[in-house]
Nucleic acid binder design. Structure first.
Length: 338
DNA sequence: CTGTCATA
DNA sequence: TATGACAGG
């Protein structure tokens, strides 16, 4: 879920064309979760192959990534490692919520409430280990680099942007800003259709770019204070304060300067320093290699069509997009040479 | 989510 | 050419 800061952050809406030629460090967990949550039939059942194995994540990852590459954008998928100790409670809470949703899903199906079924199916979404493994296999076949983070993927992705290995972090969550990402890009998809949560209503959305320096200067706060705003609203590592959204949290931090001052003598019920450290000094690694290789068309077809019953025709179109993007990349580096 | 096909 | 409904796996 991440920290909910939407609404108070300055953003720039862009066309996909403006992102051409850029590398984006994408939060893999975030993407896979969304594919699994949304790529479903009307009763909430995910896509499956003939052996009953779920394939929604492969569908989303393959077609979206092929589109990004065709658009000249180079995705670098970053996978989560070990969660910080403080995230355990959040993860357990989410598991309980998923299990409840799964029961509601079954009940809604039984009672023929199809729309409810779909809603609960979405809430029951979980990213299992085999989903990650499938994703890495597919990325390897597509000739794309991916990075294993030691800790939080968003932190590693932010680190990679700071090092200049990518232009921006791609995620729907705002956490990477707290992790110090200079640029965050949201809504990184081709078709501008996005479903409003809980309803079958779609709205047009464009990629939106959020720059950390602009955020801090326009809000008039430091990154440390932005982290404190997040802590008040709630993060993956603490619950936040009931009734406090980004607006109030921002007012609060600006008025008092820090959470210690604001809550002098009161017990916030959280280890402030430990949470701040997660965002300000996260566990990240420089030990990664970014190498773009050629896509392996036969391997992709064996995996998606042979193993998982994808349509050869559709997959072929995807492969062509990968080749086309690859060709353009070669061309642009050649152009630089001359 | 993305792709495709029918419809205007 | 644009929009909507539905299938995909």
């Amino acid at each position: 879920m991440g920290v909910q800061l939407g609404g108070v952050l300055p953003k720039l809406e862009m066309g996909l064309e403006e992102l051409r030629g850029k590398k984006v460090a994408i939060d893999a967990m975030n993407s896979l979760y969304q594919f699994l949550a949304i790529i479903r039939q009307r009763d909430g059942e995910p896509l499956r192959d003939s052996k009953g194995r779920v394939t929604s994540h492969l569908s989303g990852l393959f077609y979206r990534t092929a589109n990004l590459i065709e658009a000249g954008i180079s995705p670098i998928y970053v996978f989560d490692g070990e969660p910080p100790r403080l995230k355990r409670k959040t993860l357990e809470d989410r598991r309980a919520l998923r299990e409840k949703a799964a029961r509601e899903w079954a009940r809604a199906l039984q009672e023929g409430r199809i729309e409810d079924a779909k809603k609960y199916a979405e809430q029951a979404t979980r990213v299992d280990e085999w989903v990650i493994k499938d994703a890495k296999t597919l990325l390897n076949l597509m000739g794309l680099p991916w990075v294993q983070a030691p800790g939080e993927g968003e932190a590693q992705a932010a680190h990679m942007v700071r090092r200049g290995d990518a232009w921006a972090v791609g995620s729907q969550d705002f956490d990477s800003l707290l992790f110090g990402a200079p640029v965050l890009v949201r809504n990184l998809a081709i078709t501008g259709r996005r479903k409003l949560p809980g309803k079958d209503v779609y709205v047009e959305v464009r990629p939106e770019v959020i720059e950390l320096t602009r955020v801090l200067s326009e809000l008039g706060i430091t990154r440390e204070q932005l982290v404190d705003v997040g802590i008040l609203v709630g993060t993956d590592f603490n619950e936040g304060i009931k009734g406090v959204g980004p607006k109030k949290a921002l007012e609060f931090v600006k008025k008092h300067g820090s959470l210690e001052r604001a809550f002098e003598g009161m017990d916030l019920g959280v280890d402030l320093e430990e949470i701040r450290k997660i965002f300000l000094e996260p566990g990240v690694s420089d030990d990664y290699e970014l190498k773009w290789g050629d896509p392996d068309p036969e391997g992709i077809k064996d995996f998606l069509c042979g193993e998982h019953d994808f349509s050869e025709q559709r997959v072929q179109v995807g492969i062509q997009k990968l080749m086309k993007g690859k060709g353009e990349k070669k061309q642009s580096s050649l152009e630089k040479w001359f």
